[in-house]
Design a protein around this nucleic acid. Sequence first.
DNA 1: GATGAATGAGTATTCATTCAT
DNA 2: CATGAATGAATACTCATTCAT
Lengths: 224, 224, 224, 224
Amino acid sequence: MPDKKTMRANEIAQAALAVFSTNGYALASIEQIAQEAGIGKSTVYEYYKTKEDLFLAAIMEGAEEWTNDLKAIGKDTSDPIKRLALIAEMYLESCQEDQKGTRMFLEVIAQTCLQGGIFFDRPHLIRELHQRIVRVMVDYLLDGVSRGQLKPDIARNAEKICINFMAFLDGILMHGLIEVGYINVREQIALFLENMIPLLIDDADNSQNGIEHHGRTTQRLKTG
Amino acid sequence: MPDKKTMRANEIAQAALAVFSTNGYALASIEQIAQEAGIGKSTVYEYYKTKEDLFLAAIMEGAEEWTNDLKAIGKDTSDPIKRLALIAEMYLESCQEDQKGTRMFLEVIAQTCLQGGIFFDRPHLIRELHQRIVRVMVDYLLDGVSRGQLKPDIARNAEKICINFMAFLDGILMHGLIEVGYINVREQIALFLENMIPLLIDDADNSQNGIEHHGRTTQRLKTG
Amino acid sequence: MPDKKTMRANEIAQAALAVFSTNGYALASIEQIAQEAGIGKSTVYEYYKTKEDLFLAAIMEGAEEWTNDLKAIGKDTSDPIKRLALIAEMYLESCQEDQKGTRMFLEVIAQTCLQGGIFFDRPHLIRELHQRIVRVMVDYLLDGVSRGQLKPDIARNAEKICINFMAFLDGILMHGLIEVGYINVREQIALFLENMIPLLIDDADNSQNGIEHHGRTTQRLKTG
Amino acid sequence: MPDKKTMRANEIAQAALAVFSTNGYALASIEQIAQEAGIGKSTVYEYYKTKEDLFLAAIMEGAEEWTNDLKAIGKDTSDPIKRLALIAEMYLESCQEDQKGTRMFLEVIAQTCLQGGIFFDRPHLIRELHQRIVRVMVDYLLDGVSRGQLKPDIARNAEKICINFMAFLDGILMHGLIEVGYINVREQIALFLENMIPLLIDDADNSQNGIEHHGRTTQRLKTG
DNA sequence: GATGAATGAGTATTCATTCAT
DNA sequence: CATGAATGAATACTCATTCAT
């Protein structure tokens, strides 16, 4: 059970996450965050030494959530294809309402590669987060292979496949952000999965491994 | 032959593009841009009324370049698959040295979807740019179909396919930005193309249409 | 008993009044005002959102003082002629030392009628102040009439008379400002009063109403 | 006949007068003035070394006009009372349309008494202008006296009377500026004259000196 | 003689951060 | 522990003025 101090710190990080993801790091002000958290401006500094620290904490908060959601998928189903679909669904949801997820991703990249950005000279922090997430997804694939649900030869490429998958998801969400109403992100993802899945599974083995027909999986995505 | 005023304006936009893509909009100062352009701070204001205007001009400058490069590919070859590979190559190059392209893309998205961002309440500006680029790529696909080089039934999905392609490319470049040295973007793209190409072509027709074997195409990507 | 915040705000407004009346709105810098108030530049902005706001507050501060002084005269004496003399005296004093009063009046007019001035498109703010002052003076006159000290037929013109009186006072103070040492404002006002007073009083009634001889009143003005 | 250079300089001064009187010295920009004059910004500097110089020239231009108008009145009539009325009329007109006159007066005072103002440390320039104008008016009065149209004993006070008259006129015009629509400047002036005139003339002598009845004079003012 | 182009000095305003209470 | 108050550093933008052509 976390002590009071830690709980308060988390509340503030949550508020910060909301504000940072709405306005971006540069345009977000400590005052705004304090208001969002319902506390005084200087109280923020009792918990975080600098705005950078707070941003970092907010990122960690978000990454934690994200990783947990990702891991939860592993418990929901053991069908690797379903897992991919659920991951896609998770990404989709992250941009459905407030787009918090995608926006933070954006901000993280910006702060990592822009000179003067927070992570510009500590890219390892981000790299670690990134790899933690990749690892979970890779494990899903390898798990599928070891259960005989996925083609054995993808094991070799598992990491690349996952990275490409994530890259696509992040990319399409971003394009969705700037083309709201024009690009139907859900359909785009469904199309992607439709093409991707056959590459992963050994069709001959499907019926024998208790994997349900994946037309449904992607169908579900398409119809929301 | 552009007049002096226009040329100078372009020079400044170029300098701005460099600084904005390095530091991002918020952290870039007019002074920096002026220095980069080798002129005085207030001279910038002789050509652009506000920082926002300048950013817009820089974006347009970049988008123009980008679209031209994209269109040039159409003249280099009429093989649609080669065209895709060249597009991928073009994206790759954009992040190889200075990453100007990807960074500006990042900044544009941020300024479009962040509250208080420059394009937040004029998203049409960006949408138009985006669609202009999509259209060129779609034309390449449809061209391939009409020449019988690509499967006829992709025509229906041409736009979605292109958007997914772009989304992936943008996504992987970004991941590449934060995982420099760890992710080999070139290989990731090669893998993506390897899987994508068979979906586009009608294998039976290959030999008859003078399309060279695409193993080579992706091979070239892999080995740089 | 005003709270701390209000008191500080007043202090700053006082300082602003001093600086604005010395340098005028355009030439006064926030930094100067902050120095005058003995605080940091940005502290000013904790109390006033903009320079305009601060100017407005300073004006109100000044107007408040002015109106209070004017009203105090009503308590000092009930002789309407004496009241006029005291009003004149008050104006005189306002330009004797630092000329704060006249200068602010100048600045207010300028900001009201100059395009781009602060009050140019909200003249009602100033009009209200103006009328508040006129009303007090008019009341003095009407009071004198109802007590039988002034001619009954001036009641009809009371407002015009007051406005002319104020106009003259303001005008002569201004001329005094640019002719320091050459124009003796005190004597000019005395002359004006000398001519004005007979128009207000019913000479026949003087002795009966306990009004002292007004030669003295104006005499006092002349000799300071 | 003025050479080309002088004429151009005058044109510019005229344009400056227009802009300065509209926006005030501080808010007027050289560019605006250049535009008003239909020339390039830097051309202004061919004729006037600094903005201050230009303002000075504009003032002189205005003062010249003003003095000429004032002197013209002397030629229009030899009736001193009529002259006063015409002077009042002249002031009135100066604020009827564009209020150029009053605004410049305002600006001159401001620049004279505000620290950092143009005339702050060369008040003699303004004093001289002022006195030139006073002198003309004084001459009118003395002329009236010497012709027996005005009371002999006002000669002693002639200057004071004129200054008070001017002070009033300037004052009422200013009040008119901030109370447009509420104060009827014309009526206020008429009232002032009504009270002033009897102090100047020896009623008994009127018929003998060919002065028309002055009710008409002020009447004309009242009805515009 | 006229001007387009360039610029430095100046100013309002914002905001992360500190500190006394 | 929480915070109101204070502030310095940073930055977009303006404008009088200069100068080469």
